[in-house]
């Protein structure tokens, strides 16, 4: 990690950028905040109409969504721009420049494209999470509080891994929108408790694109629920492990993708 100070420098630069372009940062944060707030309100209204969804009430479902949003904020800060920029950078040749640096290209990109803009997203997620705990009258034991952090980080790693997977086709086919859209759409399934869907979809979001580990399984631990369908109850503790595994796989495949990079004429 002899480059740690360099990577930290990038985060500092971005922070300096915020000071310089303050209004832009506030507008981004507010827009993200309002965007997710609207999403929460929609869920709240909808579930109030139905009262429950499976065995889940409105606040429990909002809890699912807040876990997902918090993880997304972490993943987004580091990897969202890799997904969206990579194909353009490959198209216009900017990626050449990345490869002439004496750095790990992934860490370099994750630092260089880091965004503080998910601050608003994280804030709304945490506000809603606390609000749900209060409304549900759940007393948080010491262990629960301690477990929230690895769960959010693990969820961030899973979501981040998915964003990285979505960017990988760019190395081969330059355009990666299709895969990105697919992966982001699957994420929407876990806006709701997955047990309301068919077994096939449950397996998809648990074993193939494991978004259910971001919120559905760990939420059951925090909310003292027991709605595991066909899956083992131990799944509620696996989020950090799955996160590390998925991220490692995504990283390895991404690095493999680089060897297929073809560059463009200039």
């Amino acid at each position: 990690m002899r480059y740690l100070s360099l990577y930290l420098e990038f985060y500092k630069i971005k922070l300096k950028g915020i000071v310089e372009y303050r209004s832009s940062f506030f507008l981004t944060s507010i827009s993200k905040f309002v965007n997710y707030l609207a999403h929460f309100i929609t869920i709240w209204i909808m579930i109030n109409a139905f009262e429950t969804m499976g065995s889940w009430n409105a606040y429990e479902i909002m809890m699912l969504f807040s876990l997902q949003t918090a993880s997304y904020a972490i993943a987004g800060s580091f990897t969202y721009h890799i997904t969206t920029y990579l194909s353009n950078w490959i198209k216009d040749g900017t990626f050449d420049e990345v490869l002439t640096k004496p750095l790990n290209p992934f860490l370099y990109l994750a630092s260089r494209l880091f965004s503080w803009g998910y601050f608003g997203t994280m804030t709304i997620a945490l506000v809603v999470m606390i609000y749900c705990f209060v409304k549900l009258n759940i007393t948080l034991s010491f262990i629960k509080v301690l477990f929230i952090i690895p769960v959010i980080i693990g969820g961030g790693l899973i979501t981040g891994a998915m964003m990285i997977f979505a960017s990988i086709p760019a190395f081969w086919i330059v355009e990666n929108n299709f895969v990105a859209n697919l992966i982001f759409t699957v994420k929407d399934i876990t806006d709701y408790p997955i047990t309301i869907f068919s077994k096939g979809l449950q397996i998809l979001v648990t074993l193939i694109i494991p978004y259910a580990f971001v919120n559905f399984f760990p939420a059951q631990f925090f909310l003292d629920k027991n709605d595991f369908s066909i899956f083992h109850p131990a799944f509620q503790f696996l989020t950090p492990v799955i996160g590390v595994i998925m991220f490692y796989l995504a990283y390895k495949l991404w690095m493999f993708g680089i060897s297929h990079y073809k560059s463009t004429g200039s």
Binding site: E97, P102, L103
Partner: peptide, 15 residues
């Protein structure tokens, strides 16, 4: 690649 990059300098005029 990374080790090599330490010993070279590259300028792309278009970028």
């Amino acid at each position: 690649r990374q080790e090599n990059a330490m010993h070279i300098g590259v300028v792309f005029g278009q970028r």
